[in-house]
């Protein structure tokens, strides 16, 4: 309750501040939004998703009645700590570059014997996707404080990076939008929302290190796959298929560009 009051106070302060002198206050308004974010951080509801994700990870399920604890997220079977900071990466067993969410699906199939088709097709904010989002939140939290270290050593990793870069700049749809339309200038906003300059280490690092994130305005926990899907929605593109190569390639481009930034996951956003 106290937290909510505090938020209200900050929000009023933000609007009062911004209202004073319009565009001359540009920098100040961004500063105030930053303060608002800091206030939100004191009690990130993402913690609830982390807890339920951990429970899902450790509870036996599926036809094989097994937990996901033996899942290999890239640092060996059963290692969750630090794994998210090194994803996406190439996996020998699937012969594919996978992001965290596609890797979790692989583990659900191999360890638990679950047919993941329904999980892929389920809309966001339905029970099946909520489970995947909780798992993503838990796994990302286990990399908090760890620097992003995504490898481009394997040819398939380099290939995915290049494909992701090309998709980043790919214009289409009725509005001629590419990711780059909004995310390839330093220090610009849509309305009052600042946009990360994603081809830079700083911009990609700040973006990649803060998702999955709890969206306060929506009251939802968003994984990176959800984040990307909603970007494409606003881009007026058709819907990206959950964990498709296109989404993993784009993730590879952003993650590898952000190498070195320290994970601050799960994040919290407006």
């Amino acid at each position: 309750m106290k937290r909510i009051h505090l938020l209200g106070g900050v929000a009023i302060a933000v609007s009062a501040l911004v209202g004073q002198a319009a565009w001359a206050e540009k920098d100040k308004s961004i500063e105030s939004i930053e303060e608002y974010r800091q206030a939100l951080k004191d009690g990130n509801p993402a913690e609830l998703f982390q807890a339920s994700g951990e429970e899902l990870w450790k509870t036996p399920a599926g036809p094989k009645n097994a937990s996901l604890e033996r899942c290999d997220l890239g640092l060996g079977a059963g290692v969750v700590k630090g794994a998210y900071a090194q994803l996406p990466r190439y996996f020998k067993d699937t012969n594919k570059v996978q992001d965290m969410e596609s890797r979790v699906l692989t583990c659900m199939e191999t360890l638990q014997g679950i047919d993941t088709k329904e999980y892929v097709q389920a809309p966001f904010d339905t029970p099946k996707k909520n489970d995947l989002n909780a798992l993503a939140t838990y796994i990302s939290g286990e990399s908090s404080g760890v620097p992003i270290k995504v490898s481009l050593a394997h040819p398939k990793e380099r290939q995915m990076y290049n494909l992701g870069k090309r998709l980043f700049y790919y214009e289409g749809g009725p509005h001629d939008f590419a990711c780059a339309t909004c995310h390839s200038q330093e220090g610009v906003r849509i309305r009052l929302q600042e946009l990360p300059y994603l081809p830079s280490a700083k911009g990609a690092g700040s973006a990649w290190s803060t998702w999955p994130a709890y969206r306060v305005s929506a009251g939802q926990m968003w994984s990176m796959q959800w984040r990307l899907a909603d970007c494409f929605r606003q881009q007026r593109f058709p819907e990206p298929i959950y964990t498709s190569e296109a989404t993993i390639a784009l993730s590879m481009f952003i993650a590898a560009t952000g190498n070195g930034a320290v994970m601050d996951t799960p994040g919290i956003k407006r």
Binding site: G172, R233, F237, P238, P240, A246
Partner: peptide, 20 residues
């Protein structure tokens, strides 16, 4: 191939929007 397999029609936002 990645574009083809990566997107699907949803509502009015159909995959033909990927044609440039």
């Amino acid at each position: 191939a990645m574009l083809q397999s990566g997107f699907k029609d949803r509502g009015i936002a159909t995959v033909d929007r990927l044609k440039q």
